[in-house]
Design a protein around this nucleic acid. Structure first.
Lengths: 338, 338
DNA sequence: TTGAAAGCGCTAACAA
DNA sequence: TTGTTAGCGCTTTCAA
């Protein structure tokens, strides 16, 4: 075949008008059986596939959802993405995925690009929670669902996890087991998860009247390296913590690596809980206790919300889903005094 | 703003023709400085963003690359994807990602959809190595780069890993350490990686005159569960293997889990090497020896090949990249007789 | 049940 | 340096 056949070519071959062909490829009915068959045959013969760009231009919808994540190599996102994709496919949407590497500049570029492409909606874990870059989308009336991180300056549908509760539960567990010197490896405090997980930690300490100790707070950046160096820092303290709470999966990995390298015995010498389950959790000895959440469900909900907003543009209220994470108790915490 | 402004609106506001606006947004030059500024101001004011669909239709290119993988939750793919995305962004392309879950039916749907959307090229890890579904792409003159799995019935550029050599090295290492009863957990034999890794295993045995034993060959499907059950099966053998070679990352995880559950001591009782590095490799005790490859490089090469083919449509020869994997020796193999 | 024709937003050839 | 205009491939109204 030389170049792509178009609706004209099909019409010519089937000896009908392009309008009739259009009716057939869109299943609009009102076409005589025989005619339809002739058209279908022509389509088959030519290998005709309709051009989405032309259709988008007329219909003013692209059946495309843009997804923006901060770091595609963080296992959290592919899992969320799988949930999004599955629901999207069910509803006949296709997803475009881009990763910002936490850069607001890249994020804005991606957003512009998505707008150019006429996405019908966007699911975003933003690198800039102010949300100023979303103004563009608002101007163009493109619905947005924020996942994992909330947006300050705009009201959008959100799917969040109750981070405060999650980390509260974790720290509470540690406290109930007798720990008082509990360290936390924080994520960036300008992100929802980073901040909230820290707040949950503080709240638990307060509720149980445990004095807050600055030295036990490590500022990480959600990357593996910061988990590693943070743990090293804790080991060097005069008064070492007896337990560590890590604010995310990658830092958990860094932390466990450091524990290993420093010969700081997980479980016996230092108890541990991490936010988000990780592959390695059940391989370690002892197995890691973690705060877990269902990533694919997050993705599914996000897509569902977005779908509703795209297709019932009326006056839906803004919805905030708050999923409750679950503490999965394994073996990385020891009762103090044991 | 009510609805999206178009090039007309900009032209009107700036008091020029749409042609001049087009020149400016495409940086074609030949526009008086003052005029350009007026147009830029109008664009700014209206929040105009150009419509990619309309442009695609005229230009007959979408600046979009379709990427098809078999399982987005397999950590291998996000890593490859990161390499693809980075290079794509450099060259001003955007990627669309879809996952087939190993289903040829889904794969064909995705391909059709990508064609509809006018992708300029496709990078694919196919679920159907016959490649028959790629006929569609060939008909439409859309370049394809196959990654990780080759295509039988069409000549396309490929980026593969020398699986035979990789698994040969692994098995050879085991042999040199004195093992003779070496089991393999295979991937599907109708996939390139599945088959080739098995062939490397056989070749190593042959070269060292070790008799091939059917019972030590487990048929897995590259999924975690099959690694788990395969390992169980091996444990139940009258003559247990002294070493296991696992053909991919997910099966490695399943295998290690099983080892743990069965209390079959990794390292001491059974040596182990896996194809592809995994997160857990360095956490386990002993640390896992693995065959490793640079995923992001695979992605980068794939995109580069595709880019060349899209943009120099002349008569490029078909290229086959074969990356050599590396054996990373850690501690999961014991010298026999120690 | 079918067809003619307008027009979506843009690019590019041609004219001025 | 700028403008006019013909389409790109499609959907959709209106008429037949």
């Amino acid at each position: 075949m030389d170049s792509k056949p178009n609706i004209q070519d099909v019409a010519k071959l089937a000896n009908v008008s392009i309008a009739t062909v259009s009716r057939v490829i869109n299943n609009q009915g009102g076409v005589r059986k025989a005619t339809e068959e002739r058209i279908l045959k022509a389509i088959e013969e030519l290998g005709y596939i309709r051009n989405a760009a032309a259709r988008t231009i007329k219909r003013k919808e692209s059946k495309t959802i843009g997804v923006i994540v901060t770091d595609i190599t963080n296992p959290f996102f592919p899992l969320v993405m799988a949930g999004i994709e599955q629901k999207a496919r069910e509803k006949d949407y296709v997803t475009i995925l881009s990763s910002t590497n936490e850069s607001p500049v890249v994020e804005e570029k991606i957003i512009r690009n998505f707008i150019e492409r006429g996405v019908d909606g966007i699911i975003i874990t933003t690198a800039d929670e102010s949300g100023d870059q979303l103004k563009l989308l608002q101007d163009q009336n493109i619905p947005v669902v924020a996942v994992d991180r909330s947006i300050k300056n705009f009201e959008v549908d959100t799917v969040l996890v109750d981070n405060v509760k999650g980390s509260y539960q974790a720290v509470q567990q540690l406290i109930l087991m007798g720990h008082r010197k509990i360290a936390i490896i924080c994520g960036p405090q300008n992100t929802t998860p980073g901040l909230e997980r820290f707040l949950g930690y503080k709240k638990a300490l307060e509720d149980y009247n445990i004095p807050f100790d600055e030295r036990l707070v490590i500022n990480g950046d959600f990357g593996e390296d910061s988990g590693y160096s943070g743990t090293k820092q804790l080991k060097e303290l005069d008064e070492r913590p007896t337990a560590i709470f890590s604010s995310n999966n990658l830092m958990t990995i860094g932390c466990v690596k450091a524990l290993n390298d420093l010969n700081w015995k997980l479980g016996s010498e230092v108890s541990f809980i991490g936010f988000d389950d990780v592959d390695i959790a059940t391989f370690l000895n002892p197995k890691l206790t973690v705060v877990s959440r269902q990533m694919n469900v997050i993705g599914e909900i996000a897509l569902t919300l977005l779908y509703e907003r795209i297709n019932f543009k009326g006056n839906l209220p803004h919805r905030q889903y708050l999923l409750t994470p679950e503490l999965i108790i394994r073996q990385s915490c020891r009762l103090m005094g044991e």
